[in-house]
């Protein structure tokens, strides 16, 4: 099938890349742009490992055609670290709270957590579990992942949110 050109913004930079109109954004990111931090676990939207932010919304990139990404603003795990090299509070919390084991599901979960973090809201543990329930992790039992996200959203609540006291 004839190739087309995708023009969009990825990790803050304008990108132009050829793609097959049948291909998923996941394959374009991984195979054409070598952004391999976004992972493929099932290719059918069951596991969440391929999550990226598209115009700020956490999305399974395996179910999202590259064709739909024209003009969009896409953030992948490679674009999360700040320009000076410092880590996002979510990334730091995942390290400090021992939320990482094999690490394969982690980039996807971090992207969804960043979507939450950037709302500036605070979340109860139950709300965190609900928000992230589209992500499967087989190593951690989720315990330290919930701890890490709880810590990170609390940090960011103090920075950009209302710094509200949590009731639960």
């Amino acid at each position: 099938m004839a190739m087309r050109i995708l023009k969009c913004t990825i990790n803050g930079k304008p990108v132009e890349v050829g793609y097959d109109p049948r291909e998923s954004l996941l394959d374009t990111l991984r195979d054409r742009l070598h952004l391999t931090g976004t992972k493929r676990g099932c290719e059918v939207g069951e596991c969440g490992a391929c999550t990226v932010l598209i115009d700020g919304v956490a999305t399974d990139s395996c179910l999202y055609l590259t064709d739909w990404a024209q003009g969009k603003d896409i953030l992948t795990i490679e674009g999360v670290q700040k320009a000076d090299g410092s880590l996002d509070p979510v990334q730091q919390a995942f390290i400090d709270e021992f939320a990482v084991q094999c690490g394969f599901c982690i980039p996807g979960i971090i992207m969804s957590a960043i979507e939450m973090e950037r709302t500036g809201k605070t979340y109860t543990r139950d709300e965190i579990r609900k928000q992230l329930s589209g992500h499967l992790c087989r190593c951690t039992g989720y315990e330290n992942i919930v701890n890490a996200v709880e810590k990170a959203v609390d940090v960011m609540d103090g920075v950009v949110g209302e710094g509200t006291e949590k009731s639960a």
């Binding site: 391999t36 493929r40 795990i77 999360v80 995942f94 390290i95 400090d96 690490g103 982690i106």
Partner: peptide, 19 residues
């Protein structure tokens, strides 16, 4: 101590086979 592989894994830099 913190895991020696945690930093690479939270930055998406850790390389798996297909990567």
């Amino acid at each position: 101590i913190t895991r020696v592989d945690a930093y690479d894994k939270v930055t998406g830099r850790a390389k798996f086979t297909d990567d």
